[in-house]
Design a protein around this nucleic acid. Structure first.
Length: 404
RNA sequence: GUAGGCGUAGUUCAGUUGGUAGAGCACCUGUUUGUGGCACAGGUUGUCGCGGGUUCGAGCCCCGUCGCCUACCCCA
């Protein structure tokens, strides 16, 4: 038997319904906030991700599905959605429309060659939004509010963590201070953190190692070293959240995994899905458009992990819907089809092709969760009528076939 | 890349000190002639992950292998 590749899953029955429910709910809400759909390729030039996601990250370093295509191009299956959207934004020259606003939503498969575990697959799906051209922190707030709306609509509880990553005016100075601090306690930090001091010192902040974390209590906090602009934006964000009654906590160690973020960074976190607790994450990335050869354009965005959310959603109760139709004798089967076509203009219809006893038809209707069970038996065939039972109200009646 | 756990019916699992497999759910059929969900009765379903070894005999023990899961790492 040929099986799906490791870390890749088929979605059927309840699972696929969950999936669709999440995506359609997210789309409905994103549209309310003025977002329009963008579709970008799954395969992109490897260069794109090296430049956007950042060469130092593990994603680019060892987790990408990277290969040479038949034309000799160095290509890569997208490990995240933002890079492609930004590339498309620049390629479409939307960046030339100074101060115009563009808001896109997307959803689709992402690929990372990792060891699968709970809430982590090699092919996984994200829904995300990217807002271009809005520099004001109001947009950061609005995006967070929108994600809150999505989770509310899905009935999912969460905790919101926020932080500010600063900007080119304050981040480099902070980085220096942090490196200085880390170098001083170097000997007590774990092996990984020692490596990170050189490669990506900011990532030391979210090291999982308890000992590292206890040392970091004393570390300089970016949040206290922001430049005046970043600081006032962060203050504004927290006050907007408070007046909207959105609970949050400031996590000074919250760092985004991708290099392109600045200023606002946030993460929506849930318990109950194992160690992969982040269900959505995002923030501001004002420099990325420029990095990818566009004109400087401020941007904010987020992505949510659909598979992780699938573990948390409660599905609305399924109601009986539509018709089940069947015949009790072979000769009546053919007349089911025109009747079904007519009903299918507006309702779901299941046709049973094999003649069966009434009892079997009722069971069949039950199984496909139909509201009505319609059957043509011996009498109905003779009279040109059809017998219908409402399985919810338990009422039954007979109609001429032309009135069905 | 590292560590641990697990692979037995469609599914969830049980399987005693080694004697060639069971249960619930699901599915199918019935409970007299045209009335579903419930109940009852009956029935179908397995290369016991794969390969080798030990043994008179292996689902059970040993070795290997593949797969899945969980955690580390990393991340949505």
């Amino acid at each position: 038997m040929i099986k799906a590749l490791r870390g890749m899953k088929d979605l059927t029955l309840e699972e696929s319904e969950r999936f669709v429910h999440i995506v359609t709910t997210a789309i409905t809400i994103a549209k309310r906030y003025g977002y329009g759909y963008i579709e970008t390729p799954i395969l992109e030039e490897t260069k794109l991700f090296k430049r956007s996601v950042g060469e130092s990250s593990d994603i680019v370093g060892k987790e990408m599905y990277q290969f040479e295509d038949k034309g000799g191009n160095d290509v890569c299956m997208r490990p995240e959605g933002t890079a492609g959207v930004v590339r498309a934004f620049v390629q479409s020259k939307f960046d030339r429309q100074q101060s115009a606003k563009f808001k896109f939503y997307y959803y689709g498969a992402m690929f990372r060659y990792e060891r699968p575990q709970k809430g982590r697959l090699r092919e996984f799906h994200q829904f995300g939004c990217e807002s271009f051209g809005e520099a004001l922190v109001y947009e950061d707030f609005t995006i967070i509010e929108m994600i809150g709306d999505i989770f509310k609509a899905l009935g999912i509880g969460y905790k919101l963590q926020i932080n500010s990553l600063g900007c080119p005016d304050c981040m480099p100075q902070y980085r220096e201070n942090l490196i200085k601090f880390l170098t001083e306690c170097k000997d007590e930090l774990c092996e990984d953190c020692n490596r990170r001091i050189d490669t990506n010192p900011i990532r030391v902040l979210d090291c999982k190692n308890d000992k590292c974390q206890s040392l970091l209590v004393e570390s300089p906090k970016l949040i206290k070293n922001l430049c005046s602009n970043c600081d006032s934006d962060f203050q504004k964000l927290t006050s907007l959240l408070e007046s909207a009654n959105i609970e949050y906590e400031i996590d000074t160690n919250l760092v985004r995994g991708l290099d392109y973020y600045n200023k606002t960074a946030f993460e929506f976190v849930s318990d109950n899905i194992g160690s992969q607790s982040a269900i959505a994450g995002g923030g501001r990335y004002d420099k990325l458009v420029e990095f990818l050869d566009g004109k400087p354009t401020p941007a904010v965005g987020f992505a949510l992990g659909i598979e992780r959310i699938m573990e948390l959603v409660e599905m609305p109760i399924k109601e009986r819907k539509g018709y089940y139709i069947g015949a009790m004798d072979e000769e009546a089967v053919d007349i089911l089809f025109p009747l079904a076509s007519k009903k299918r203009q507006s309702d779901r219809v299941t046709i049973e092709y094999s003649p069966k006893k009434l009892k079997a038809h009722l069971k069949g209707a039950d199984k496909v969760n139909a509201r009505y069970c319609a059957v043509i038996g011996e009498d109905e065939f003779r009279d040109g009528t059809i017998w219908i039972k409402d399985l919810v109200k338990k009422e039954e009646f007979t109609l001429p076939q032309r009135e069905f």
